[in-house]
Amino acid sequence: MRSIGQSFSAIVLAADREAENPVAAAAGVRCKSLASVNGIPMIFRVLGALSASGKIDSVLLCGPPGSIVKEERELDDYLTSGQADWMESQATPSLSAYEALKSQPADKAVLLTTSDHALLSPRVVTYFLDEAEKSGCDVIAAVARRETVMSAYPQTSRTAYRFRDGAYCSCNLFAFITPQSRTVPSFWRQVEQQRKNPFKVISILGWLTVFRYLAGRLTLSDAMGQLSQRLGCRAGVVVMPYPEAAIDVDSAEDLQLVRQIALHK
């Protein structure tokens, strides 16, 4: 049995979803991960936060493509020095997560995040993993209340899932605590194409769940219960008190916003 307080491995998904990424184009770089936020490429901001948290003992980058890594001296040196391992990304994020998780020992807890989480900080990583371990769940996702995010950053636009007890935004942080959690990426494949459409994501849990969601009767806890049944393991969430945890970089506008926020952090 895993003991509370043990270290995690980290997997960072760092490949672009599309051949011509708009963030990369706006920043004038070869892939989105390399877009600079106040002089530091996003991928190194994420890696720095993971390292400084004290919770991570190894890192696996899934992407960027090897052809890009070889031409990016700073990233190539980082990998060559052994500070992180690297593997080629797969066709979709869920397949990348599946293959990356397969490379980790089954009894090793894993944190999964993305390289465009440019506002990730050590306190966000530490808070999430500490709360995830206390939850007693197999797999845990980080969310933030929409009101928390919008009150701090009203200029941002975030997809929100609206439940009876409030609206929540995803934070691109996932903890796989137990071996049972390793089945989750195959389920993720069913929903990744609908990630910006809360209704279609909820519909995967069944039509009764949809009706309750549309009627405003479904709580976040109810949804996690339904999801646990579909997954065959205990799924839960950690509600993050940090609004920046819900802000990643999906567009050129997001990049400008993150640059502004980072100036004051």
Rank of each mutant, 00 (worst) to 15 (best):
L173G: 01
S81C: 04
K70M: 11
K55E: 14
E244A: 13
S121Y: 01
F8G: 05
D130C: 03
L47R: 02
R123M: 01
R182V: 13
S53D: 06
L205N: 07
I4C: 01
E131H: 15
L263A: 11
V124F: 02
L75E: 04
L79T: 12
D116H: 15
W86N: 02
L218N: 08
Y153N: 00
E244Y: 03
M87F: 02
K265W: 06
A142L: 03
L255A: 12
I177R: 14
A97H: 05
E131L: 05
W207A: 13
P243W: 00
V12K: 04
S58F: 04
G225D: 13
A24M: 09
Q260C: 03
K32F: 01
A97C: 08
R230A: 15
A35R: 03
R230F: 11
I247F: 02
S203Y: 06
A26T: 11
R30P: 02
H117T: 06
D116I: 14
A91H: 03
D254E: 09
E253T: 12
A15N: 11
K108M: 11
E131Y: 02
V124E: 08
Q190F: 09
S186M: 05
V249W: 03
S89V: 00
T80N: 11
A15R: 06
I202L: 06
F211D: 04
V125L: 01
L220N: 10
V249M: 02
K265Q: 15
L50M: 07
L61D: 05
P22M: 06
A25H: 11
Q260K: 12
V59K: 03
C171E: 09
E74I: 13
Q180D: 14
K196D: 14
P198F: 04
F176Y: 14
Q256I: 00
S33C: 14
M87Q: 14
R45Y: 03
I177W: 00
F163A: 07
Y213G: 06
V191H: 03
T219I: 14
R146N: 09
P241E: 12
T126A: 15
G166E: 10
T159M: 13
D130I: 04
D16S: 12
L47A: 07
A118C: 08
I56C: 13
A245N: 05
D107V: 07
A109E: 14
S33V: 06
H117E: 08
D222I: 09
G232C: 13
G82I: 04
L119H: 01
A141P: 02
L112T: 05
Q260T: 12
